[in-house]
Design a protein around this nucleic acid. Structure first.
Lengths: 232, 232
DNA sequence: TGAACTAAAACGAGCGCTCGTTCTATAAAA
DNA sequence: TTTTATAGAACGAGCGCTCGTTTTAGTTCA
């Protein structure tokens, strides 16, 4: 399919290593991370965030104690508190970074495309691929949203609606051009979002069944396009 | 559509009042609920479960304290502990009751149907309708599954897979009869499940957009059947 | 070279508090 | 009398978080 890309090449193109993400997170949160030397900060943020993601995915954020985190990351309690101001602050750091990365990834991917059908394919693929790489991040954001303090909770809902709106707008643009059928775009956008989220919420199921992200992506795209696209 | 039913009549047919559910829960858990007289037990179980569902949906199970629950339900700490053995036990009571009800509802609905297409429609409608009535229950089960003790966690996963298997089997039966196209039934079953779950996980979104369960149901069925059904 | 100094970073015992849970003593209802 | 409900004290465990102390790494000076 024209404009399609495989997961392998996506992964290579975007630089989504833990180290790169933590460096960005450090530079944008100098007031939370009270560490001066960049290399030390990045090295330990990688440890902390990996440990936090592991523990949160195992038992949930609320049930993860900072003593658990201390043990898992190899840093002392005191050291942890030089990298974030509070447990809630740690959650905020994690979550805001996830939001930034997914939006950037999707917008980078659909930026070049003009044709609505290709644009829709790229948006869906980008979402699946970025969530494939950062699955624990997405899982945590989804599951803990409702426990956030007011402001962060609002941002999480907005991000959810923004991605959905993005899909709906592509669908509507295609309908105006006549390449898509006149289907309820709001509902279709919502269920597409649900299918995208299922990929990172039930990864255990899909990997057990040996369904790769490329296979899932192809299936979902076929399903949607059969319903939506006017001429074959 | 032949065999279809509206939400309103479904609600009337199945007896899913809180009182009926609590009575059943009481009769099946005499060892947990250390109350002798049925009427007293049912009356207070309704109070307790309503309060627990309200609080859990607001702040999550882990963050709900039993002092909160005592205040919200109007029962004392001591009284609460005559209705369940521990906080985990309360979660188990809630969750097992939800499982029982959804399975019974779906199996009752698809029991009469023979034609795969009608069977699939009924299964999907029954799932949506029962989750419409018991939304807080479903939301809680979904969100708290991973915090369950081993045995309960296993049961929750099994229930998830059972409902999915049920869909997949209907799809395969229809494919063997030639009324459905030869589509990957495992993946289709998975994404149908995702769409069903989205209904109770994002109810705030749908009710804000004035999408009724009948409207959502009609959309989802149309989406799936366009892809799956051989002749129109 | 190596001793002395220093700022950054890491340490971990301990504080104050809330949690789930138990228990007591008493009252009300059936 | 028996069953159920009450308010609330008490308990130990575990929580997030702090802070005085120690370690580390790098620089200065003899």
């Amino acid at each position: 399919m024209q404009g399609d890309l495989k997961f392998a090449s996506f992964k290579q193109d975007m630089n989504l290593t833990m180290e790169a993400l933590c460096r960005e997170l450090f530079l944008q949160n100098r007031e939370s991370v009270r560490i001066i030397k960049e290399e030390i900060a990045v090295k330990n943020l990688v440890k902390i965030l990996n440990a936090a993601l592991t523990l949160c995915n195992r038992k949930g954020f609320a049930s993860m104690s900072l003593r658990d985190l201390s043990k898992e990351s190899g840093l002392s309690m005191g050291a942890l508190y030089t990298y974030f101001a509070s447990k809630d602050d740690l959650l905020r750091l994690l979550q805001s970074q996830g939001r930034t990365v997914v939006l950037r990834a999707i917008e980078t991917q659909i930026g070049g495309a003009e044709h609505p059908r290709i644009k829709l394919r790229k948006a869906i693929q980008a979402h699946l691929y970025v969530s494939e790489i950062m699955q624990p991040w997405f899982y945590l954001s989804y599951m803990e949203t409702k426990n956030f303090p007011r402001e962060e909770h609002k941002k999480a809902i907005e991000a959810e609606l923004f991605t959905e709106k993005l899909l709906i707008d592509i669908i509507r643009a295609g309908q105006e051009k006549g390449v898509f059928k006149p289907i309820n775009s709001e509902l279709l956008g919502a269920v597409i979002k649900a299918m995208l989220q299922d990929w990172y919420l039930k990864r255990w199921k899909y990997s057990q069944r040996r369904v790769s992200v490329d296979k899932y992506s192809a299936f979902v795209l076929d399903f949607i396009e059969s319903y939506l696209v006017s001429e074959p």
